[in-house]
Amino acid sequence: MDHASAYLRPSNPVRILMKQIRLRYAGACRDCGTPLPPGTKAIYEAATKTVRCLGCVPVAKSPDPQPAGPPELADEDLSPTASGVAGSSARREYERRKAKDEARLREKWGRLGGLAVALSDERQSTKAWDQGAIGEERLGARLDSLATAGVAVLHDRRIPGSKANIDHIAITRQGVWVIDAKRYKGRPELKIDGGILRPRVEKLLVGRRDCTNLVDGVLKQVGLVRDLVGDVPVTGALCFVEADWPLIGGAFATGGIHVLWPNRLAKVLAEQTAGDVDVAATCESVASRFKSA
């Protein structure tokens, strides 16, 4: 198949336009989840505003003649998709910090700077941004696969008046989900102190790490989105990618925030088909307020 430009004919008469592009921003294949760094050639599908790696492109091709066009989009045409690119701001921050660290080493070691860069480990504060970007990219790819289930997804959205961002926002027929992706090691658990005679205190632990502050962060994001959408229900979720989840059970809620893993989250969202929320209109409203980072 000519990957440069192909029209696939689905079961309905609407054509799906796909074009080969060179990514300006990092992404992930919507089918297999493979990370796609900037500069990678991939297939962009206009109908779903998602990308696929070349190995996952379907082989069907319409026999209809197509208008001639350039085999590859020019760089200036490669703006982020309307839904945003998962992990893009974290990826940019990682690249910025990495370049700054390398420049510092080269300045310190002079002619031996290249060797110093090659032999030095990345600083943990820099590596953390790479790990975070990977987590967002992988979860983003899983969420993008829900397009056929009537779920609209927005990635990496700026919070107005702040340097912070919302990792993912999903809109279903039942409401809006505000999702924070984390790539932490260890098992997420809910620890409860107090009870009858003492105030009940809930703590979110991941391994031995107290991550309760993450719940507070999602609650603030939920509040911002709720102020915008009004009566539409808004739910918060912390999604831990590659955590040590048990084979049976494991998902829980604390402070009204769901704590779960990508496949479990995708299943919950895909099941929310019975409702009266106008997905397209709500998505447009949210996207106009929380713009792509």
Rank of each mutant, 00 (worst) to 15 (best):
L8D: 15
L8P: 11
R9F: 08
S11C: 15
N12T: 15
P13C: 04
M18A: 08
Q20D: 14
R22E: 06
C29I: 00
C29Q: 00
D31G: 02
C32V: 05
T34S: 06
P35C: 02
T40P: 07
A42G: 03
Y44F: 13
Y44E: 11
K49W: 15
R52W: 01
C53Q: 05
G55V: 06
A60Y: 14
P65H: 13
P67S: 14
D75Q: 14
S83Y: 07
V85D: 04
A86Q: 04
A86F: 03
A86P: 02
G87D: 04
S89Y: 00
R92K: 10
R92T: 04
Y94F: 06
E95D: 14
K98F: 11
K100C: 08
E107I: 05
K108M: 14
K108F: 08
W109L: 15
W109N: 11
G110C: 15
R111N: 14
L115K: 13
A118S: 12
S120D: 12
R123M: 12
R123K: 10
S125Y: 04
A128I: 09
D130E: 09
D130L: 12
G135W: 03
E137F: 11
G140Y: 00
R142L: 06
A149N: 11
G150S: 14
V151H: 04
A152K: 06
R158H: 08
R158D: 13
I159Q: 04
G161N: 03
A164F: 00
I166S: 00
I166P: 03
A170E: 01
R173A: 08
R173E: 07
Q174V: 11
G175M: 09
G186K: 07
P188L: 12
E189H: 07
K191I: 15
G194I: 04
G194N: 12
E202N: 06
K203S: 13
K203F: 15
L205G: 09
G207M: 11
D210R: 14
G217V: 15
K220A: 09
G223N: 15
G223S: 12
G223P: 10
L224V: 09
V229S: 15
A237L: 05
A237R: 06
L238Q: 10
L238F: 11
A243P: 01
W245H: 08
W245Y: 10
G255A: 13
G255V: 10
I257N: 12
V259C: 09
P262R: 00
P262H: 09
A266K: 02
V268L: 13
L269G: 00
V286L: 07
A287P: 00
S292A: 02
A293C: 09
